[in-house]
């Protein structure tokens, strides 16, 4: 696979949404391609940042609580 194809799949790769075959192809590619690896790292970091605020909830919940 070419770099462009790989890069389009990186979100799915991170989310574990790829089939075994594709995942292995990407694994192999990443071992030798610094640019795609870097892309993956920065994307992973972005997702981690979003996950880190996923516990955000409204400061004062005004809806009735029962």
């Amino acid at each position: 696979m070419k770099c462009e194809q790989i890069q389009l799949l990186l979100s799915q790769y991170l989310d574990n949404e790829l089939d075994e075959l594709r995942r292995k192809k990407i694994d192999r590619h990443l071992q030798t391609c610094a640019s795609c690896s870097q892309d993956l790292t920065s994307l992973a970091k972005t997702v981690r940042v979003l996950h880190a605020v996923s516990d955000l909830n409204p400061p004062g919940t005004t809806t009735k609580k029962e």
């Binding site: 799915q12 994307l43 970091k45 972005t46 997702v47 979003l50």
Partner: peptide, 13 residues
Amino acid sequence: VKSRLHRARLAYR
């Protein structure tokens, strides 16, 4: 979903 999510993450990054 797959393509929009990926584009959204790239935009966010």
